[in-house]
Simulated scan of single mutants.
Amino acid sequence: MKKILLFLIAISIYGCKNDTKANGKLNVVTTTTMITDLVKNIGGDSINVQGLMGSGVDPHLYKASEGDVSKLVNADVIFYNGLHLEGKLVEVFEKMGSKTKTPIALADELDKTTLIGSDYFASNYDPHVWFNIDYFKQFAEKVTQVLSEKNPENADIFQANKTKYINQLNELQNTIKSVIETLPKEKRILVTAHDAFNYFGKAYNFEVVGLQGLSTATEAGVQDVQKLAAFIIEKEIKAIFVESSVPKRTIEALQAAVKSKGHNVEIGGTLYSDALGNAGTVEGTYIGMFEYNVNTIVNALK
Rank of each mutant, 00 (worst) to 15 (best):
V77G: 03
G54K: 02
A122T: 06
I251H: 01
F241G: 08
S273R: 06
V246N: 09
T102R: 15
G262S: 01
V28L: 05
N81L: 04
L172I: 05
E234K: 15
S65E: 03
Y80E: 08
D37V: 08
Q168D: 09
H60K: 00
K227T: 01
M1S: 12
A257S: 10
N27I: 00
K142M: 05
S118R: 10
N170L: 09
K112T: 12
G43H: 13
V92E: 03
E86S: 00
T285C: 06
M34Q: 02
N154R: 10
K238G: 07
G284T: 03
K185W: 00
K21Y: 02
G67E: 06
P152M: 01
D76F: 03
G277D: 07
K137H: 07
D126C: 15
N151Y: 14
K40Q: 12
K162R: 12
L85T: 08
L254A: 05
T100S: 07
I157Q: 03
G87I: 07
S260L: 14
N170H: 09
L85Y: 09
E291V: 11
F121S: 07
I78W: 14
K164T: 11
G210T: 04
S148P: 02
D45A: 11
T31G: 00
D19Y: 01
G15H: 03
L72N: 13
K21E: 07
G24Q: 10
S123V: 14
L8H: 15
G280Q: 06
K40V: 14
I104K: 13
K248D: 15
E149R: 04
T270R: 05
L106A: 00
Y62A: 03
L190V: 02
G15E: 03
D134A: 15
N295D: 10
I13E: 10
H263Y: 14
V298G: 07
T192D: 05
N23M: 08
S98W: 11
L26H: 14
C16M: 04
N161K: 08
V225E: 00
L271S: 00
D119G: 02
Y14G: 12
D111S: 11
D126N: 11
I157Y: 08
D224S: 01
K187Y: 01
A22F: 13
I42P: 01
K164N: 13
N170Y: 11
I11H: 14
I180E: 00
S123N: 06
L52E: 10
F93S: 07
N41H: 12
E186R: 13
L254F: 00
E86P: 02
A155K: 08
Y199D: 04
E207V: 02
N170M: 02
E181Y: 00
I116R: 10
A193W: 04
G268W: 13
I35V: 06
V69I: 11
Y286D: 01
A203E: 05
K202Q: 03
K101Q: 11
K238V: 12
G51H: 12
I11S: 15
P103N: 15
E91N: 15
N174P: 05
G213Y: 01
V90I: 14
H263K: 12
A203Q: 07
D58T: 03
D134V: 11
L276I: 06
F131W: 13
G269N: 10
E243C: 01
Q255R: 03
K248Y: 02
P152V: 10
